[in-house]
Design a protein around this nucleic acid. Sequence first.
DNA 1: ACCTGAACACCGTTCAAGT
DNA 2: ACCTGAACACCGTTCAAGT
Lengths: 235, 235
Amino acid sequence: MTKDGARPSARPRLSREIVLQAALRLVDEEGLDALTMRRLGQELDRDPMALYRYATSRAELLDGVAELVLAQLDMPTDVPDWQAQLRRTAHDFRQLALAHPNVVPLIVTRPLATPLALRPIGTLRPLEQMLELLVRAGYTPVRALHVYRSYWGLLHGHILNELQEVVVDPEETDALLRLGLHRLPNKDFPRLRGLAKALLAGYDGAAALDESLDLLLSGLTGDTPAPRKVRARKA
Amino acid sequence: MTKDGARPSARPRLSREIVLQAALRLVDEEGLDALTMRRLGQELDRDPMALYRYATSRAELLDGVAELVLAQLDMPTDVPDWQAQLRRTAHDFRQLALAHPNVVPLIVTRPLATPLALRPIGTLRPLEQMLELLVRAGYTPVRALHVYRSYWGLLHGHILNELQEVVVDPEETDALLRLGLHRLPNKDFPRLRGLAKALLAGYDGAAALDESLDLLLSGLTGDTPAPRKVRARKA
DNA sequence: ACCTGAACACCGTTCAAGT
DNA sequence: ACCTGAACACCGTTCAAGT
């Protein structure tokens, strides 16, 4: 209850969680550029300077937003079929990315600005969980790290591909595409122009992801003691 | 020869090429944030507004920088061994990315903001070349498009992985890592902490890229008429 | 027609002044 | 000790005024 009862729902007590959720909402609705200290302060009905209590810079705010999204990714670690689990998590990641397309640039590029060990804990948890899963499946820790890198690279590569196909206004896709392809010199881009129909038909992201996973998992099968449940071997 | 002979080498006549090259130099040396209209104008000894002749906005300038780097990637299209060519181009891309790490975020994320057909022509050329290569190898155009997507996704995923391992100051790597790992709760991150030694040992990017390529290319072998030279089949 | 630069509407962040 | 907000040093971009 505030002194004047004019704003019943505004001005909740702040916390890092609340600040980051507001930041995520802003990014989802209006894009990365809309996330400024001043704008976010306005959104939370606070002096922009108050936000520096919860994030020491705008960059940390961006990290926090990426972390908030990735924290929703949970990988159970004691499952009978670890390959199926990797597949499931991949699709979870995809759904998360599609739900927050404006956050994807942060997810894929923010880590470049932060050495692994200094990264927000929420972004390190999937790594730890996957290492655990793979070690229980019989991999050595070092091998597990390699597999993790291939897997994560695959997810990042896939989602960057898929989001390129999404056009903001679906009604305009066709026109834009024709316009764009028409602009290309026929002499220099015969193949691309020939693919107009296929490009207009769109892209089955889930299927493409599964195909990539098939490849990765088939590459892994010759690599591990057994395709399913296995005792973890410990030194 | 200027009116006062004080600046012999400054103030070259501008062109899009020259503007973009200066922009790239700025990004390489000082990072993406240093690339502002005002700063670039200063670098070229021009009124910042003059730059709007060569790029209609800062966003287009960013696209131009990514384009300038990617334009250096050339994929010969009439080679006997197309798989070897894909491998070669992958390593060329890797070297290009390592030479311009600050541009990598642009390369992987700018396409998200621009529908395929409206992209700068320089970023479309590798696509066209690869389609040509694959069609000559015997793939249908649509299948070639799928392969292109997997391949490009692989390259993006890989380079994002590899650049994460690079730390600005190599001397500090060790300390930073120990510090960072120590910060992680042992209870929650046993696997990650156990990998400290492997993480400190670093990352052989070229080898990791080759392994990923092995997987992709092996997945492709069952897929195409012949492993090497082949007549293009036309309808 | 082309170019210039003043002006507008913003930024992130510091820090002195308040409580 | 904590919080506030004025102030600093920047931004991208528009547009009127010059040539």
